[in-house]
């Protein structure tokens, strides 16, 4: 599948934003930020900024961005629509929390809003994953591991941002860093299982099934229907990255998981200043997750390519 940069930016940036919102809300829930509204705002603002940048980027991907509001209507059947509804709904508790801190409102609603924001963030990221996982035409995506990884990746990048911002104010407590380490480890395990799974599945559909001509023998393209690639080939037949896939997988694992893991552990136990190490960890994870997301698209094969010379899909 063609890796559109707008969609890569959308899924990675909004994922990190929702991840940060999730950890922030969880922190509020357990009373971690008691009284420190500036610290809470310092996390909420970048979270909402990342979410908004991501959503705007996904709108730029549309042919008619001005009609985007229509995408809220079909939540009964469409995961994309559900994601839109979940994304907009999550703004409500998140912005209310922001207003409470900004205007110093004395209220007991904060924990309830935090629960809603955390749930909204998790549900939105799950819906993002399900947009891809619901497509049976793409066996690399049609897996329960896909939404699981989207959640794990959001938790990883969100936890690193949480630790980074926390370290600006004060040394991050150990238990906060441990959640970050756990998120990174889980994301890495899920991704490794994911790659193992897709490598073991060569596809159950053949060109013979696609054309219905199997009884006559093997089917091979003779004359193409058009002289140059059409939309279907450009969108669904993207092959550029596949020969470098193995190398890029190693790059993604090193940058997204291993280096951040090492940096977070160093920040915890070395006694050196935490900020530069956590900044490096976050930057590394950001690049690593972008590489991972690019691969997620570039490695995915579409059944329609059976009509264009693929033997199996």
């Amino acid at each position: 599948m063609h890796p559109a940069y707008s969609v890569i930016l959308f899924t990675t940036a909004s994922g990190a934003g929702y991840g940060l919102l999730f950890w922030l809300s969880l922190g509020i829930q357990i009373g971690y930020f008691a009284g420190d509204r500036w610290q809470s705002l310092a996390m909420l603002v970048p979270a909402l900024a990342l979410i908004t940048i991501g959503l705007l980027s996904s709108m730029l991907h549309l042919g008619h961005p001005e009609r985007a509001h229509r995408a809220m209507s079909q939540w009964r059947s469409s995961w994309l629509s559900r994601e839109g509804v979940a994304a907009l709904s999550t703004y409500v508790p998140a912005s209310l929390m922001g207003m409470i801190w900004l205007l110093e409102i004395d209220t007991n609603f904060l924990p309830a809003l935090a629960i809603l924001a955390a749930a909204g963030a998790m549900i939105t990221v799950y819906c993002t994953g399900m947009i891809y996982a619901s497509l049976r035409t793409i066996r690399h995506w049609n897996l329960g591991l896909v939404p699981l990884f989207y959640i794990a990746a959001a938790a990883t990048t969100g936890a690193l941002l949480f630790l980074l911002i926390q370290s600006i104010f004060a040394r991050a407590p150990d238990w906060v860093a441990v959640t970050g380490v756990a998120a990174i480890a889980m994301a890495m395990i899920v991704k490794l299982i994911y790659w193992r799974t897709i490598d073991g599945n060569k596809g159950q559909y053949t060109a013979e099934m696609a054309t219905g001509l199997g009884a006559l023998g093997t089917v091979r393209p003779l004359d193409p229907p058009h002289t140059m690639p059409n939309f279907v080939m450009r969108e669904m037949g993207y092959k550029v990255g596949r020969k470098h896939a193995r190398k890029l997988r190693r790059v993604a694992v090193a940058l997204a998981f291993i280096l951040p893991l090492a940096m977070v552990l160093l920040a915890l136990y070395s006694g050196w200043p935490q900020l530069p190490m956590l900044a490096l960890a976050t930057l590394s994870a950001a690049i690593g997750i972008v590489v991972e997301r690019w691969l997620f698209f570039a490695e995915a094969e579409h059944v329609a390519m059976l009509y264009y010379g693929a033997a199996r899909a």
């Binding site: 009609r67 035409t137 059944v303």
Partner: peptide
Amino acid sequence: CIGCKLCSWACP
């Protein structure tokens, strides 16, 4: 139609 292309992805 908003041109999100998801329907084309869903067509085998």
